[in-house]
């Protein structure tokens, strides 16, 4: 249970992270309550994206990178050697800063993960693709273009397609690394609206440099600085009455 009484979905315990000899994260302890949106904020290089990628072991792909400490998903340590990383990344999906659809049709982008996970029946796949596109709030816009190239979509539509692609395999947690930083305000608003809908069934963790976005979309906020978790808590409290001066200086733009 978190302090607020909501069950904890994901939790970092004494997490340290190294790129070779450089330590990027220092003893991070943070809980992510279930069905809530948590924003990770902090200046560039503070470790928030590194931390995000630790949560589904994306950093495993970087030579020389290593993590110490525990990350508990439903109470199980995902840093355990026996963890099936493919299965982990299905349960903890990810959306990146720049939309990265496959050079395939809209339909195939979403169906891809389903096929990889063994779904073969066409009707089931079709239903799931539609459901995922609806959950990402893009189906109505592109329902007549399902078999056109995903690359023909606008940037905002591509990003929501990537969200649909992540949703198709029913993740429990969705990691979003500055998902709207390359989008215009209307596309950004659509992403934020879909996040609000998604949190009914998902735990969402978002990295953002946009303070207003963090304040708008998240329930909880964690502020990182120089690899350390400085302050975390309810978003409303962080943005109206932060406890620490470092947090206040950062969110008010005095940090320099």
């Amino acid at each position: 249970m978190s302090h607020s009484g909501i069950p904890v979905k994901l939790s970092a315990r004494g997490l340290n992270f190294f790129y070779g000899r450089h330590q990027a994260l220092f003893d991070v302890n943070l809980d992510f309550p279930e069905y809530r949106i948590t924003a990770l904020i902090g200046p560039s290089g503070c470790g928030k994206s590194t931390f995000l990628r630790c949560l589904n072991r994306m950093n495993d792909l970087i030579p020389g990178a290593r993590a110490q400490g525990e990350i508990l998903l439903n109470g199980e340590n995902i840093n355990d050697r026996r963890t099936d990383v493919v299965s982990l990344r299905r349960r903890v999906g990810m959306v990146f800063q720049k939309p990265n659809p496959f050079p395939k049709s809209v339909f195939e982008n979403v169906a891809y993960g389903l096929r990889v996970n063994g779904m073969t029946k066409k009707a089931e796949i079709s239903d799931k693709v539609e459901e995922s596109l609806r959950r990402a709030a893009i189906f109505e816009e592109i329902k007549d273009r399902l078999h056109k190239s995903a690359l023909s979509l606008s940037g905002g539509q591509q990003q929501r397609l990537c969200i649909a692609r992540a949703l198709a395999v029913d993740p429990q947690v969705l990691l979003m690394d500055e998902p709207a930083s390359a989008l215009d305000p209307i596309a950004t608003q659509k992403i934020e609206e879909s996040m609000h809908e998604l949190k009914a069934r998902l735990t969402i963790i978002i990295v953002t440099h946009n303070m207003q976005q963090a304040a708008r979309v998240s329930d909880g906020t964690a502020f990182f600085y120089m690899g350390k978790l400085v302050e975390s808590g309810e978003t409303e409290g962080i943005f109206t009455r932060p406890r620490l001066k470092q947090t206040e200086d950062y969110i008010t733009g005095r940090f320099g």
């Binding site: 304040a215 109206t240 009455r241 932060p242 969110i251 008010t252």
Partner: peptide
């Protein structure tokens, strides 16, 4: 500016 924290208050 969408101020926050002390500035907003």
């Amino acid at each position: 500016n969408q101020p926050v924290a002390h500035d907003l208050r």
